[in-house]
């Protein structure tokens, strides 16, 4: 058990890095997912196709492959994901601005992959709004955008919040894969380093890493259960 104390810094900094990764990826996924959802309900067919293709591809592809293409495909496209070196953000999230691009690649992989699920969650939310609502809105003369903005989306958000939460929880767990694709020092990479390079016993290391992830996932899960139960009662 002494590993947890001796190497507390590894766990703490690993947790902090994983947390940063999750936070930024969640934002990215929400943006991409919303864009995708808007595309999928837009009147322009090619945009709908793009939206559908995006969701189909990334929902059915193992995350490992997505990570691979972020870490090795993007470089062959000549990109180091430098567009993510956002000046203000880089000062808070130090890994965002450094030369080594694997933190940015991990954000891209997680955002793009999770975005597909976010898109589905939002779409299921939109579907949950009864058609009468949109019809009524149209009857009083609202345009497509107004209809979405004032009537459909606010209600859809409410219905989508629980599935969205589940998607984000899944994303937090998926972030563990980043440590296997070039991100040095996150929870899973730290754990691997402790056990395989330094030969620390496996079980305490595992417990440390588990705590790191459970701190993020369990409270979120309990919160969602609560929201769900309250809504169930209301219904």
């Amino acid at each position: 058990m002494s590993v947890l104390v001796d190497h507390f810094d590894v766990f703490a900094s690993g947790f902090w890095l994983t947390f940063q990764l999750c936070l930024l990826s969640a934002v990215g996924a929400l943006i991409l997912g919303t864009l995708g959802a808007v595309m999928r309900i837009s009147p322009v067919p090619p945009l709908r196709w793009v939206g559908t293709a995006y969701v189909t591809v990334f929902r059915n592809c193992p995350l490992t492959i997505v990570f691979f293409f972020a870490a090795f495909g993007l470089p062959s496209l000549g990109s180091n994901a430098d567009f993510l070196k956002i000046p203000g953000l880089s000062s808070i999230f130090s890994r965002l601005g450094i030369d080594l691009p694997y933190f940015r690649f991990a954000i891209i992989a997680l955002s793009v992959y999770t975005g597909a699920f976010v898109c589905e969650a939002i779409r299921s939310g939109i579907n949950a709004v009864s058609p009468g609502q949109a019809e009524a809105a149209r009857a009083i003369g609202l345009t497509f955008t107004q209809n979405l903005r004032f009537v459909v989306l606010p209600q859809a958000w409410k219905a989508a919040i629980v599935p969205l939460g589940s998607v984000i929880i899944a994303m937090i767990k998926n972030s563990a894969l980043a440590g296997f694709f070039g991100l040095v020092g996150d929870l899973s990479n730290g754990a691997q380093n402790l056990t395989s390079a330094l030969g620390e016993p496996i079980i305490p290391v595992f417990i440390g890493v588990s705590i790191g992830f459970l701190i993020m996932t369990v409270p979120l899960g309990l919160l969602l259960d609560r929201i769900e139960r309250r809504r169930a009662v209301a219904r």
């Binding site: 090795f72 890994r95 296997f180 040095v184």
Partner: peptide, 16 residues
């Protein structure tokens, strides 16, 4: 943090 990358096989390092 800003200097070291590790992968599972050296081929990936060579690609990088």
């Amino acid at each position: 943090a800003s200097q070291l990358v590790v992968f599972d096989v050296y081929q990936k390092c060579v690609d990088a």
